[in-house]
Design a binder for these strands. Structure first.
Lengths: 209, 209
DNA sequence: ACGCCTAACTAACGCCTGTTAGGTTAATAA
DNA sequence: TTATTAACCTAACAGGCGTTAGTTAGGCGT
């Protein structure tokens, strides 16, 4: 399935990575190396072009970062919403929550350089870039709050849970995975099951024999 | 309790912040502003000295960062160990675990710029500095693994929990707090209680009426 | 009073950064 | 065939970075 049409696409011919190509590479580099050490020259080199050329597609480095951050949230948001809506209408609360957790972790680990880049570099980018990303984040957080509120109302969750805190705790835990996850030691799906087990039932041995 | 001896310590006299003073200020800046935007000139300015003077106390920027990282882990390690050993010998497993969780969160939020700086910048520093910090980290992780293993053996925890995963999940969750915690919206102790509640018993409404 | 030691200062270095202006090429449309 | 345009290149800029070398000020022990 390699080079089907035109065996030699390159060879002094213009490669034309284009705006999307630059963005893909930037997302990959940000995920791999964090923010500080990813310069425009590194992005350009990885894209096979020169640093100045990036300014044909983007007005500034901040603009690139902002685009990566926004795409990152959009991907995980859609992934999570789709996972929930794809369930049969009669799915019980526990199943829904497990699906949402799995979808978030999948987007983070298996699917998207954009989402993992977002989680990795968000805390390192200039304040203005963070602010620009906030509305997109808020929308995703609202999706979680809405889901958790519904699960609380229908009796799936305990009545004394604080929705906001629970959401911050959940997403915080899931995102923290990036700091240590090694695909050689287990799959994202298996890990998401562990996460769900702990969050849903806790780790304490029950006394009810 | 302010300026008891010598009302005017400064006033063109040498301020003498010293090595520890520089380190304290570096830790505070790293906690507040992350790694990339904290230059030696900023540290120096905050300390009331000039950038070059830092090289009297430290051989390189990496040396400063390494010192901050190490102190950060040592503080939280001691905090957690003391909290556990300070309990009465007959304290039950749940109490012990709750104390350990509270101690970690306290060190992170209330006590130490060094610990919070560690968590915030660890992922952003050069690889060599990260590597130098690893042994100290490993020792703290071993302390947790030891505690959790004991709680599993004595029947406090479920028998199917994976110690390593649980430890990664716990510390990951606690550390993620730094990304959103606002002292105006609640205390570290109250939050640690919520964390313990969720981890120990889960969020699912129980059916056992 | 002297000399030493500690803790600072000044001034500069080479390097890397984001960014800009203007020129060049290849493909497409008329 | 010619004109247009999208996508790139080249070369340079100012500014910030970590780091170094040499110098200076103040306090302590003798």
């Amino acid at each position: 399935m390699a080079q089907n049409t035109a065996i030699k696409v390159n060879e002094t011919s213009r490669s034309a990575v284009g705006r999307d190509g630059v963005l893909d590479i930037a997302a990959r580099l940000f995920r791999e190396q964090r923010y500080g050490s990813v310069s425009l020259r590194k992005i350009a080199e990885a894209a096979g072009i020169k640093a100045g050329s990036i300014y044909y597609h983007f007005g500034s480095k901040d603009e690139i970062v902002a685009a990566v951050l926004d795409a990152g949230i959009r991907v995980v948001h859609e992934s999570m919403r789709d996972a929930v809506t794809d369930l049969r209408a009669d799915a019980d609360g526990e199943t829904v929550l497990r699906a949402a957790i799995r979808a978030h972790l999948r987007a983070l680990i298996d699917v998207s350089d954009y989402t993992s880049a977002n989680v990795r570099i968000f805390g390192q980018v200039p304040q203005s870039v963070r602010d620009a990303n906030l509305p997109t984040r808020r929308a995703y957080e609202a999706e979680w709050d809405s889901l958790l509120s519904q699960l609380k109302k229908d009796g799936t969750l305990k009545q004394d849970v604080d929705i906001r805190r629970l959401r911050l705790m959940l997403i915080g835990t899931l995102n923290a995975t990036l700091d240590w996850f090694d695909p050689d030691r287990g799959s994202a799906d298996a890990l998401s099951r562990t996460y769900a087990d702990v969050f849903l039932n806790g780790i304490l041995q029950r006394q009810d024999t």
